[in-house]
């Protein structure tokens, strides 16, 4: 693989997708139960952390 400049959007989106996928896997397999409040809270937390990570990465890149 060629060396490529770090793509922060892909990095954060990938992490968010992994978290969402893992949570969805747990839920769909019956390991956990979700509801509206839980999903909204999780979405806010994950997207908030992702946004913060984007900002940090962008600052570091500058």
């Amino acid at each position: 693989m060629n060396r490529h400049p770090l793509d922060p959007i892909a990095l954060v989106a990938g992490l968010v997708a992994l978290i969402a996928g893992f949570t969805g896997l747990l839920h769909q397999s019956g390991a956990i139960s979700l509801d509206l409040a839980t999903v909204v809270l999780m979405a806010l937390i994950v997207l908030g952390l992702g946004g913060a990570a984007l900002v940090v990465l962008d600052l570091r890149r500058r």
Partner: peptide
């Protein structure tokens, strides 16, 4: 998600 994560480094 794994593909996206990998693409952060290889684009």
């Amino acid at each position: 998600g794994g593909g996206l994560l990998l693409s952060a480094f290889v684009g």
